[in-house]
Design a protein around this nucleic acid. Structure first.
Lengths: 119, 119
DNA sequence: CGTAGTGGTATCTTATTGAAACTTGGTTTA
DNA sequence: TAAACCAAGTTTCAATAAGATACCACTACG
């Protein structure tokens, strides 16, 4: 019997990782933070993303209010995605995590090598 | 032709989300930050985790140098997991992300409701 | 007319996740 | 002394997600 931290199934961290913090989201938000960007330019900027993954991630980001989707009535039709005010606030914690990775990638990799040597 | 941010396949964010930032990791590190904890207590503290997921996540965290695994020669044998110095440094950016979620979970949910009404 | 670019969707295949059962080895219970 | 039990996992199998590929409708360009 203890009153220690207990992570329930409705814990925010579940929402976080199921809906928000995936690898494409962080990259998309970073690109959109520079300027509003269209579907195919996003695709070119995110090496290795499939159209399906990009399309699904964009829809999820839009649904969660982190980006906005706007159809421009040009010919041919263009679709422009931009970061929302809510999305902007997410960039800071994402940035902290991203910087952690850059700073510690070497430490992680050498830990991994020494683990693999031990096993 | 542009010199804008381009996310390559070996971008740190790939390592980050493939190896480090999953939902179980953040919860495990938070628990281990309180005190070293054994396998089954971890399992009890993380509602809904399967033994396999827990076991695999622990091994990955250990391999990446974020936690330490120690076998205690008691009877019966116990295995104690504890956070490493490197793991400690990760708690700060994880915490920032976690706090963002807590603070903005309402905004995300109402965005989602209004999206679902529109569609 | 053929080709390329726009923003996607549909389909099929391969990983990943998760639930549930099983394992190994010691331990208390009856 | 066997029955049952707990620790810390592993194995197996089914469901889900992710990814590659193909396709669609439309427009512009040469």
């Amino acid at each position: 019997m203890d009153d220690k931290t207990h992570f329930h199934v409705d814990c925010p961290s579940r929402l976080l990782f199921e809906q928000i913090a995936d690898k494409w989201s962080i990259m998309i938000l970073t690109v959109l933070n520079e300027k509003p960007t269209r579907f195919n330019e996003l695709k070119r900027r995110l090496e290795g993303v499939s159209q399906k993954s990009l399309s699904m991630t964009l829809r999820r980001l839009e649904r969660n209010g982190l980006i906005q989707r706007q159809v421009l009535q040009t010919a041919p039709v263009a679709v422009e995605y931009s970061i929302s005010p809510l999305g902007l606030t997410l960039l800071e914690p994402f940035g902290a995590l991203y910087r952690w990775t850059c700073e510690n990638i070497q430490a992680v990799e050498s830990a991994r090598e020494s683990f693999d040597r031990r096993v």
